[in-house]
Design a protein around this nucleic acid. Structure first.
Length: 479
DNA sequence: TGAAATGTTGGGGCG
DNA sequence: ACGCCCCAACATTTC
């Protein structure tokens, strides 16, 4: 009795899942497999927040499969050994999966594909995650894109006709009784209960993702106005669902188009959001073509910049939101508590770390990697290199965010900082982003002390020092 | 998807 | 009525 294995990885959904669809279309009974193989992620094994999400997403997928008469077979890696063993147990003739784009995953998957094919099996990979895969478009000279705008001009024209696949009507399961690891035994969940803020914020799994898509589609025309306001829910919050493939970009686009029915102006108004999906595509394009950038500056000139050796106490203060600069601390505590940070605030905290503190962006990227539920190697790498000025189409080095002005501009009422900083609860909005400027009597009155009376770094002096370091780099390496 | 310094303009107070 | 100064508002340049 032959079967087809669907190897789930970061495509933890039934709708618009090309690998699942291909297996079903083949007419063979199917086996759904997940292989837990963190050691195959190399330098970028998932962090605690990602693991928290993965555990719940696997449970959700298993529940959906059980509703359809099947189940998720969970095995420990290495992936190749797990797959070949399952082939032996089930008589499978085909393995289907959806592609990943991280260097370690590409290398592993290529080997598995080659070996399976050499042994006469069908080994088919599919595109479930991107409108445009990294090798599908190039510049006019055949090079990978390094600038977003021309990349997006090219990619945008290719997304209009991309429609999601429906969930398979009926799943026919392989009959064999197969052993499976309990998801709870994989060690993905926290030993101590630090996850209450995550539980209160998120619903991992396909159903949770679909709920977010619907909620966002209903308010997507406000995205352009509200996207920079961390005190509001103006962004989609879809990033973790997209990262784990609980929903696809095509589904997001389809939901927006559905909302726009009868009003063509709506699609124009959601273009700023589609651009953000475009940045996600661009990130994958860059990581694929420049795989070393997860650890190294894309622009090698910045290897010579006088990065500062992190001061453990200062780095720790940044990580845990105790620098004394309100919007920075609020963002870092939002990250710690909820596994997520508003994008505007990500830029602000990253600018502080890479420019005012002049710590190499990899220190920030690593902390985000361990704490974000949406930690994604492509997006994380692009984001940090963009802010640090070391990457493709990056912010110029001299673009240094002033967290006080950013706070006053985008969190004018101070609602966002007060949500995460009880220390500032009583400070009037006019001073909440610069509590150190209050007179001592007022600081006493409003309960302001510690780092909020005196931040751990001087924004003016650190900015000047960063500009000087940049000038020295330019002088040493003029181009 | 910045900020700060510097330059320009124009209205209003005032001798 | 006129010139002068101040300075806010806006524009441009520089980092």
């Amino acid at each position: 009795m032959s079967t087809a294995i669907v190897w789930f990885r970061r495509d933890l959904r039934l709708i618009d899942n090309p690998a699942l669809d291909a297996a079903v279309q083949s007419g063979l009974p199917i086996v759904a497999l997940y292989v837990h193989a963190p050691e195959e992620e190399g330098e970028w094994q998932s962090g605690a927040a990602s693991d928290w999400w993965l555990q719940r997403s696997l449970v959700a997928l298993d529940a959906q499969l059980r509703e359809r008469g099947g189940r998720l077979i969970v095995r420990r890696g290495p992936a190749l050994a797990a797959i070949t063993r399952l082939i032996g147990e089930t008589g499978a003739v085909a393995v289907h999966w959806n592609r990943l784009y991280e260097p370690a995953a590409i290398a592993r998957d290529q080997i598995i594909e080659q070996l399976l094919k050499a042994d006469g099996f069908i080994a088919d990979s599919h595109n479930a995650a991107l409108f445009v895969e990294p090798w599908q478009i190039t510049t006019q000279t055949g090079q990978p894109y390094r600038v977003f705008t021309p990349f997006w001009r090219n990619a945008f024209g290719r997304i209009a006709d991309a429609l999601p696949l429906p969930a398979p009507q009926a799943l026919r399961w392989a009959g064999a009784v197969l052993p499976s690891e309990a998801i709870a035994s994989l060690g993905l969940s926290p030993a101590v209960a630090w996850d209450s803020g995550l539980c209160a914020t998120w619903t991992p799994g396909e159903q949770g993702g679909l709920m977010r898509v619907r909620a966002f589609a209903a308010q997507a025309t406000r995205y352009a106005q509200e996207r920079d306001r961390p005190d509001l829910t103006g962004t989609s919050m879809l990033s973790p669902h997209l990262h784990f493939g609980e929903i696809s970009p095509r589904q997001v686009l389809a939901a927006l188009q559905l909302e726009a029915q009868g009003d063509p102006g709506v699609m124009d108004r959601v273009e700023p959001f589609l651009r953000e999906l475009g940045w996600r595509e661009f990130a994958h394009h860059l990581l694929y073509h420049f795989p070393a950038t997860a650890a190294h500056n894309l622009n090698a000139r910045f290897d010579q910049l006088a990065w500062a050796e992190p001061e453990p106490i200062l780095l720790r203060a940044w990580q845990r939101g105790r620098t004394g600069i309100p919007i920075v601390d609020a963002g870092m505590r939002q990250l710690w508590q909820t596994g997520w940070m508003h994008n505007r605030v990500r830029m602000i905290v990253a600018s502080l770390l890479t420019k005012n503190l002049r710590y190499h962006w990899r220190h920030g990227a690593r902390w985000f990697w361990d704490t974000l539920v949406d930690a994604d190697l492509a997006a994380n790498t692009l984001g940090w290199q963009w802010v640090a000025g070391t990457g493709a189409d990056a912010a110029p080095y001299f673009r240094i965010f002033n967290p006080v002005l950013q706070g006053e501009r985008f969190d004018a009422h101070g609602h966002y900082v007060k949500r995460y900083l009880p220390e500032l609860a009583r400070v009037p909005a006019a001073r909440v982003h610069r509590p150190w400027t209050l007179a001592p009597a007022q600081q006493a009155e409003f309960g302001v002390g510690g780092v909020y009376a005196r931040p751990l770094l001087d924004l003016v002096r650190s900015r000047e020092a960063a500009l000087e370091a940049h000038a020295r780099m330019r002088a040493a390496d003029p181009r």
